[in-house]
Amino acid sequence: MKSLKVITQIAASAMLLFAAAQPALAAQDPTGSKQTTYPGISSDALEKFGGEAGVHNWVEALFYYIMLDNRINKIFIEHGNVARQIALNTQLEQMVLGGAVQYEGASMSAAHADLGITLTQFNAVVEAAYNACERVNTPYSVCNQLIAALAPFERSIVTR
């Protein structure tokens, strides 16, 4: 019976933690500023990415890998203009890394609301993101600053 009590206590603490977590689970959208992460994104991340030109190169590489990935390229072909997505992503990625750049596109949830994106498809883009870092010779540890900044968008992009 004592073990049952311990399990109940563990379950109760888990539920409490879950309840405390609720407000943080709201949909994530670009807020017009650097993404808040724990721990924070390193202050020289944008510089190490090569500034605007470096980020632009990375986004070009990202879309190169996305458009070659038969799991996800159809979504990008059917919904929207790739050149425009490259321009908007260059803004967004600079902004979340702490650059003084305003993202002019739609919110993440609005832009993806009707697409029925799965987590499997989202992860395919994450894989493309890592491939893109390797393509433009951005070190893995620098790449992870951007991964940290973009990861919370999963909550507004994945709807299935």
């Binding site: 563990i10 379950a11 888990a14 933690l17 879950f18 405390a20 977590a21 943080a24 689970l25 994530q28 993404q35 808040t36 992460t37 724990y38 991964i147 940290a148 900044a149 990861a151 919370p152 999963e154 909550r155």
Partner: peptide, 19 residues
């Protein structure tokens, strides 16, 4: 798996928890 995201929720400190 009970709650939390080990990977995606880099904007909070809530861990992924499983029993």
């Amino acid at each position: 798996r009970v709650f939390g995201e080990a990977i995606y929720d880099s904007d909070n400190l809530i861990p992924q928890v499983a029993v």
